[in-house]
Structure formats: structure tokens, C-alpha cells
Amino acid sequence: MNSFAGAEHGGIVHTVLGPVPADQLGVTSVHEALLSVVPGAEYAFDVEIDRAEIFEILARKLTDFRDHGGRTIVDSTGMFHGRDVRLYETLSRSTGVHIVASTGMGPEEMLGGYFLTPQTNPPTPWPAEKFAELFTREITEGMVVPRIERRGAAGLVAAAANHKGMTATEESLFRGAARTALHTGVALSIRYGNDVVHDLEIVLDESLPASRVVVGALDRTDAVAAGAPHDIARRGAFIAVDHVGLNNNDAYLTDHKRAALVVELVDAGLGDRILLSSNAIGVAKGQPDYEVPYSFVLSTFVPLLTSQGLSDEDVRRILVDNPRTLLCVTER
């Protein structure tokens, strides 16, 4: 997989171990989860949080990713889903894999009442500027280890909406996340609700360039049926085909249809907008395990793409050049 090494590229990316030159990222997976904990599950009587065991599992999976040619993993889960910055630092040092952690949150049902400002009657959403302040500090001052300290800077801000449609709180969240991306230079990752164009327009309305946005889950069958991957890519945003390896859920394409979609996008001249990942969960607590290897894109999906005519140059662009461009911190 060394044939997919990237060319020199200026700028830096925020990793858990500090700034890294963008040209050192190599093959990058932009929508994954390391430790994913449903908020509150850490207090459940039947959920065990064994940090040593979690480390061993994640180290093994990251090493497998590295051995298949992977160099950088983006944990895109945000603030309150099990993010463990100290653990990620140790994993990165131990495996040699760059880890980019994220700030942000969503969808609304995962936020908790605190973010509904319950002192008002009826409850009203946090204003966008409060979300922006919260996320911005995680980039400019470091990610919070709750009630203890701040560590390294987040390298991405992420926001997610409910599949049934964006709520008022989620619109405020998306606007705050967009302001954070605009003012700090990191990219914004959004996972849309039921109207991808509407949700993208919300963040673009905050003057954030489309080129600083990645829209996830564009291998959902409803999105593909509506032509959303092509439409969003033509608007200049990155599109994440990010459930590679998921083949038993009618809400998403199968891998063979994903590969066909990627080839279509490349043939349409949109290869510089595509990102690939699996939304794999290394360790899940309070939710079902999702045992797709971080290496699956490299070990299984890339051969499928090349069998359908995609060139090594196209693959390199998707796996190396595009995520490097997205994650490189822009000047403010």
C-alpha cells in the first residue's frame, strides 16, 4: 500500500499528539470511532469499562490498519460518546497511527437536557454562539478531560442531526459548529437528517466554504436515490461514502453498489470530493458491537474499486490527497 503515499503538501493537522505536517497523514480514514459509549452507559450496572482491555483491543485494530497501509484515523464521534483523549494519545504512541480526535456533538436525543437550557419555559435550544464557544475552546485551548484538564487540540468539529429531520436545537448546533470551523480553520463534518441539501445549506449560510465541509452517510439509499452524492460534490463539499463493509442494511448501499457509485463520481470528474471509511466502532459500550476492521477499506474495498477500473492514481487521491486537503488547518 506504499504506492498510495502522498506528495508534499504544506500546512498542519491537529492530532492527539500535537500538530503534524499534513503531508505525513498518508492513507486516512475520516469517519470512524475508537471508543463509542452511549451517554450514561458508563454508569450502567451491566457495562464494564476495563481500560486495559479497551487499550488492547484498539491497539490490535489500529496495528492491523497500519499493517494494511493505513496511517491516520479520525475519531469523529465528538465530545460525549466515550472520547478518551489520554487513551488515544497512548494508542497513537504505541501503534504509530496518527489519531485525529473531534469536538462537536449530536443528534439532539444524545445531548442531554443541559443543552436545552431547561431554565426557560418552554425549553429553548442553546444559541449557536454558545455551541461555537464550547467547540472553539476545544480547538484553541485543548479538548476537555472532564473536571480534570484540557489536552491536545481537536482536529475536526462534528455535528449530527436526527434521521427524521433537523430539529431547532440541531440547527443551532450546526450553526455553532460551522462558526467554529470558520474561525479556527478546522473542517466540519456533518451527518444529515432527512434533507441533505437543507442541512448543508444551514452551515453554508454561516459563510463557511463548502470545501471545508464533509457530508457523511452519502451511501444511504435515500441519498443516492435523490442524486445527493453528485449534487453535494458539485457544490464543492466533500462527500463521505462511509459505511464500507455494511452489506446487510437496506438503508445503505451494498459494497458493490458503493463501488459503482465511487466509479460514477470519478467518471463525472468529482474524484477530488470523495472520502471513504467504514464508521467502524473499535469498542462499543451500551450499544451493539460493530465488528468491521479499520483496514476493511484497504484490504477489501480498494481491490473491488480497482476491479471496476479505478486507477491507483484515483485511489491515492481518495485515500490520501482528499482527506489531507480536508483536515489541513486553513489560515483564519
Rank of each mutant, 00 (worst) to 15 (best):
T28F: 05
I73G: 03
L35K: 00
P39G: 02
L62M: 09
Y43H: 15
S76M: 13
A22K: 09
H81R: 13
F65K: 04
G26F: 05
E109Q: 10
F45Q: 15
L58V: 08
A59P: 10
V20Q: 02
L87C: 02
H68T: 13
V74K: 07
S36I: 05
T103I: 09
G69N: 11
A22R: 04
H98Q: 08
A41R: 08
T28S: 04
Y88H: 09
H81Y: 14
D75Y: 08
D46H: 15
A101S: 14
E48H: 12
E48Y: 09
E108C: 03
F45N: 11
E109N: 10
F80S: 14
V27F: 08
V38E: 10
A33N: 11
S36Q: 11
E56F: 04
S29C: 02
G69V: 15
A59F: 02
A44T: 13
F65Q: 01
D50W: 07
T72N: 01
Y43M: 12
E53C: 08
T63M: 01
I54K: 03
A101H: 03
G104M: 06
I49K: 01
D64V: 15
V27A: 05
Q24M: 12
E108S: 09
V97I: 14
A59V: 13
G78E: 00
L62N: 02
I54E: 01
V47A: 11
R86A: 11
D50G: 10
R60F: 11
P21M: 09
G69D: 08
A41E: 10
P39M: 05
L25G: 06
L58K: 01
T103P: 09
P39Q: 06
S36G: 02
T72A: 00
S92L: 13
G78L: 06
V97Q: 04
S36W: 11
P107Y: 05
L58A: 02
R51W: 13
D67S: 11
I73C: 09
I99S: 03
S36T: 08
Q24L: 12
R83L: 12
L58Y: 07
R66P: 11
